[in-house]
Nucleic acid binder design. Structure first.
Lengths: 339, 339
DNA sequence: ATGAAAGCGCTAACAT
DNA sequence: ATGTTAGCGCTTTCAT
C-alpha cells in the first residue's frame, strides 16, 4: 500500500492539514516546515491518491476548453471524437470539457472563442492556434494567468504552451517520398503542391520529401512546387496551368489543403498521373474510394484530440507536467480498403 | 450532480446498506425490496461513483493476468508495452496486472500458465490462446467460474470469451492487395506465402487478398500459395524451390510467420522481385530499413495490449460488458521512414 | 432481512 | 502558522 498524507504527517510530527498545505501550496505554512515536508514526501515517494482526491473535491469542477478550427470538416470531426472519448473517461473525475468550433475562422473570431472560454472559467485550453502574433500574445497572457495551454494539430511560435500534439511534418514528408518511390517509375516526375512555403509545417513536409527523394530515389525529379494558399480555386488554376504546359508529370503530391481543386484539375484534363494527398477530408475519402488517388496520408486526428485532453487533465488533476514538449502522432498510409 | 446511493435509499425508504446489497448482490435481501430498488436505480439512471468505489475498496485488489506467446519477439514486446500502459493507468484503481510470457510455447505450457494465474487469484485473463480443444475447454471452465477472458491477438473457436481484440484478417488481406496493386505492374505475378491454409486467420487474409485482386487488379495473378507452417526453414526451402523454377514472379507476399526464411531465399537467389511482409518483427524491421522489402503491414500490437486490459478492467471495476464482441485494430502500412 | 457505524485518503471550513 | 473536524460516496463489519 502506498504512503498516505496521514503517515507523512505522523513522520513529520505535524497534522494532515499542514502536510496538505505544504504539498498543495494553499495557505500559510512555515517555509521551513514546508520544506521539510516536501522533502519527506519526495523521499518517501508520496503520490496523492486520485480516488480520494476526486472524492474529496466533489464540489470543485475542472473545466477544459477546446477550440477547433472548423465544423463540417471530417478531419476536425475526428479530432472532436477523440476529445469526446477523453471527456467521457474524465467524467468520473469532475472534469467537464467544453468544445468550441466555428465554420468561418479568422483571428478576431478565435480571440473571441478564447475569451468566451475564459469567462466560462476554464483552467486549461487545447487550441488549434492561428499563426498570428495577436493570438500568441493572448495565449501567453492566459498562461501567465495560470491557464494551461496545449497546441493541438497546429503549432505556433513564441508561445510557452505545455505541449504540442500533432503531426511530425518532416517525417510525414519523408514517408510521402517512400510511398511515392514505391508506386512510381524510377525516373518519375513529381509536381508538389502545398499551402504556402511560408508555413513551417508545409515547408518541413517538402524538405522531408526532398531529403528522401535524393537519398533513395535520386532519379525522381520535382518539376515544380506550387503554392495553393489552401484555396481550392487557386489550386485548380495553378495545377491546371502547370499540367497543360507539362505533359510529363507522373505524380502529383498534395501536401496540404487545396487538394480538392487540384485533383479536379487533373480530372478535367484527363491527365494520366498518380495522386497522393494528405488528410482524410470528405473529398479525399471519396477520391480514394473511386480510385482517383492512390493513397491518403493521415495524422491520426482522433488520437490528437484524445491526447490533448489527456495531457491537460493529467496536469489539472495530478499536477503532472507532460513528459514531452512535442507529442507526434503517426503518419498513416491509407489505401482504398483501409476505410 | 449525479444521484447517490444515499438518495436512492431515502427514496426507497430503506438504508444505504440495503441498497448496496440489492445493487451489488451481496447478502440476503427481500426479493421484493431488491426488485424495487433495482428498478428505482435504473429509472433514476444511477451510476456508481468510481472514485468513491475505489476509495472504499482500498483493501480489495483486482488482479488481471495476461498470457503472451513469446518473449524476445518485437511484436509481443509491443503488446506488452500496451499492457503496461494500461496497467499503470489502473494502478490508481487497485488493479494489478500480472504478465506471463514464455519462449517455448506449447499446450501444456500454456495450460500451466493459466493455472498459475488462477492460483495467484486473478479475476480476469487476457490470453493469446493456442488453437487447441484442451485450451478451449480450460478457458470455458474459467469463464464458468466467473473469470473474465479476453482473446488477445489470436482467436479461438468455441470459447465464450468477453471479446476478441486483434486483427481483422480479411480486411488486412484486402489492404495487402491494394498496396500490391499500387506497387506492381498491372499484369504482375504474385507468390503468396502463409502459415497454414488450415488457420482461419491466414485463410481470411488470403481470401481478402483474392477478392480485391479480382475486383480491382484483375490482370494480376497468384501463381501459387505456399504454406510455411510458420517455420523459417520450411519457408526458405519452399520459396527457394518455387522461385528457382519460376522466373516470372514479381511480388512475394508473406502473410504470416515464416517470412524471414522466405525472404532469405529471395536474397540468396538474387531474385528481382518486390516483397510485402506482415508484422514488425525484428527481422522485418531490418529488411525494411535495408530496402529489401517494400512495406510491412502491421496490426497495432500496442493498442491490442492496451485495449484488452482496458476491457477487462472496465468489466471488473464497473461491471461494464464490452460493447462489441470483436475489437479490430487498424492494419497499418509501414514504409522505411515510418520506423 | 435490515440498519448503524466506521473508515478508505483527501479537501475545506473552522478553530486555535 | 498549525490543528481539528466534518464530509465526499461507497464498502464492510457488526448489531439488531
Amino acid at each position: 500500500m502506498a504512503i498516505t498524507m496521514q503517515e507523512l504527517a505522523e513522520m513529520a510530527g505535524v497534522s494532515r492539514s499542514t502536510v496538505d498545505r505544504a504539498l498543495n501550496g494553499r495557505g500559510r505554512v512555515n517555509p521551513k516546515t514546508k520544506n521539510r515536508i516536501c522533502q519527506l514526501a519526495e523521499s518517501m515517494g508520496y503520490e496523492p491518491d486520485l480516488a480520494a482526491k476526486t472524492l474529496a473535491s466533489k464540489s470543485k469542477v475542472f473545466k477544459i476548453g477546446c477550440i477547433l478550427n472548423s465544423t463540417g470538416n471530417l478531419f476536425f470531426e475526428d479530432v472532436e471524437k477523440g476529445i469526446h472519448a477523453a471527456a467521457s473517461e474524465l467524467n468520473a473525475f469532475n472534469v467537464k470539457v467544453i468544445t468550441k468550433a466555428v465554420e468561418q475562422l479568422n483571428i478576431p473570431c478565435q480571440l473571441q472563442m478564447i475569451d468566451s472560454l475564459v469567462s466560462e472559467g476554464v483552467q486549461a485550453i487545447a487550441i488549434t492556434p492561428l499563426n498570428d502574433p495577436e493570438i500568441a500574445r493572448r495565449l501567453n497572457e492566459l498562461i501567465a494567468d495560470g491557464i494551461a495551454v496545449v497546441a493541438l494539430t497546429a503549432d505556433i511560435a513564441d508561445v510557452n504552451y505545455l505541449s504540442y500534439v500533432g503531426c511530425n511534418h518532416t517525417k510525414s514528408g519523408k514517408i510521402t517520398a517512400n510511398i511515392a518511390g514505391l508506386i512510381s517509375a524510377p525516373d518519375a516526375n513529381v509536381l508538389f503542391v502545398l499551402g504556402s512555403k511560408g508555413l513551417l509545417g508545409h515547408n518541413q513536409r517538402l524538405s522531408g520529401f526532398k531529403t528522401v527523394l535524393s537519398e533513395n530515389y535520386s532519379h525522381m525529379k520535382i518539376l515544380d512546387v506550387i503554392e495553393s494558399q489552401d484555396d481550392e480555386f487557386i489550386s485548380y488554376n495553378k495545377v491546371h496551368n502547370f499540367l497543360s504546359e507539362h505533359p510529363d508529370v507522373d505524380l502529383v503530391v498534395f501536401a496540404a489543403g487545396g487538394s480538392t481543386g487540384g485533383i479536379r484539375a487533373v480530372q478535367d484534363l484527363h491527365y494520366p498521373c498518380k495522386i497522393i494527398s494528405f488528410d482524410l477530408t470528405r473529398h479525399n475519402k471519396q477520391y480514394l474510394e473511386q480510385g482517383v488517388i492512390s493513397c491518403v496520408l493521415c495524422q491520426e486526428p482522433y488520437t490528437q484530440g484524445y491526447q490533448a485532453v489527456k495531457i491537460l487533465s493529467n496536469y489539472l488533476l495530478l499536477g503532472k507536467e507532460p513528459e514531452k514538449k512535442r507529442y507526434y502522432t503517426k503518419t498513416e498510409i491509407l489505401v482504398r480498403n483501409s476505410l
